[in-house]
């Protein structure tokens, strides 16, 4: 379980986190969603002990991170958004160092390294030097490393950023499998489809504050089921409808190219913040789909 209360962090004049409260129950996967600069990585950096918060508390598996950092960190596996394998070491050596950092004895290291490499289907790459691996392989190796010491909590910071769609889907499959094995997962992402596909619950973060949370269906359902996108003054304006028929009827009445699609989390984020995941603010209108 992850429990964050009143988390605040300021960098000079900029307030990165403004009293964030967040809870991830045991076995739950929560997507922490927001545009670049929303404060997602700052939150993860605090959870991993890389940054000190100005205020607030963090409990990891019930252990206070500030009071007992060693015990709290030992419950977590972290996949950074940076491909941070030790490039000069082989994959096995990378994992061995990690296992030693987490106090695993020689037998546990041997067994654990073989197990996680098998888990991410990279047993044949154990002796490969990390810098020679592809981006997708590095990411899978980082997931293997995060799982090596058997953490109950997994912190995934933009785990598929920079990967092509096919590799991204493979990583999603892996994350789903880890979730199925009972891990508590906090996933930061700015990929809407990633959050929709993976998360039990989504938390929207904007400008350092949580603006909404709920299941993907709860968040999108407030707008309606269907969206109509039409160009207006050089940008796309979206209108929301409770049914496909209503959206199609509205589309037929409009001149020029329009498209009808299902409402997604980006629509919900846009409606709540006035900005999309890229931090820009196109217009949106609702038609009886609830707000």
């Amino acid at each position: 379980m992850i429990a964050i209360n009143g988390l605040r962090k300021r960098y000079g004049a900029s307030e990165a986190l403004r009293g964030v409260d967040l809870r991830v129950e045991a076995g739950e996967m929560v997507a922490y969603l927001g545009p670049n600069g929303a404060g997602k990585t700052t939150t993860i950096r605090i959870l991993t002990g890389q940054t000190r918060p100005d205020a607030g508390t963090v409990l990891l598996g019930g252990v206070d991170l500030a009071a007992r950092p060693v015990q709290a960190k030992s419950r977590c596996g972290v996949v950074s958004q940076h491909l941070n394998l030790d490039g000069d070491l082989s994959l096995r050596e990378n994992l061995d160092v990690h296992a030693r950092l987490f106090g695993m004895d020689a037998a546990a290291r041997r067994e654990g390294v073989a197990r996680v490499l098998d888990y991410v289907e990279m047993g044949d790459k154990a002796e490969a030097i990390a810098k020679t691996l592809s981006g997708g392989q590095k990411r899978r190796a980082m997931i293997a490393r995060a799982l090596l010491h058997g953490p109950s909590i997994l912190l995934l910071d933009e785990p598929t950023v920079g990967l092509d769609p096919a590799i991204r889907r493979r990583i999603w499959g892996l994350i789903k499998r880890i979730q199925g094995d009972g891990a508590t997962i906090l996933l930061t992402t700015h990929y809407i489809e990633e959050a929709e596909f993976l998360a039990d619950r989504v938390v929207f973060l904007d400008q350092g504050a949580v603006v909404a949370e709920g299941t993907p269906a709860e968040l999108t359902g407030r707008l309606g089921e269907w969206a109509l996108d039409c160009p207006s003054n050089g940008e796309i304006v979206s209108e929301y409808f409770p049914s496909r028929e209503a959206a199609a009827t509205a589309a037929a009445a409009l001149p020029g190219p329009v498209s009808v699609r299902r409402v997604n989390l980006e629509d919900a984020f846009l409606r709540m913040t006035g900005r999309n995941m890229a931090g820009k603010g196109p217009a949106a209108k609702g038609h009886g789909g609830g707000h």
Partner: peptide, 18 residues
């Protein structure tokens, strides 16, 4: 190099070590 290039220092910071 570990800090700025490989970013492996993050791994040490996140590890349960003093």
């Amino acid at each position: 190099i570990a800090r700025f290039y490989w970013r492996i220092f993050e791994e040490f910071q996140a590890a349960p070590i003093h």
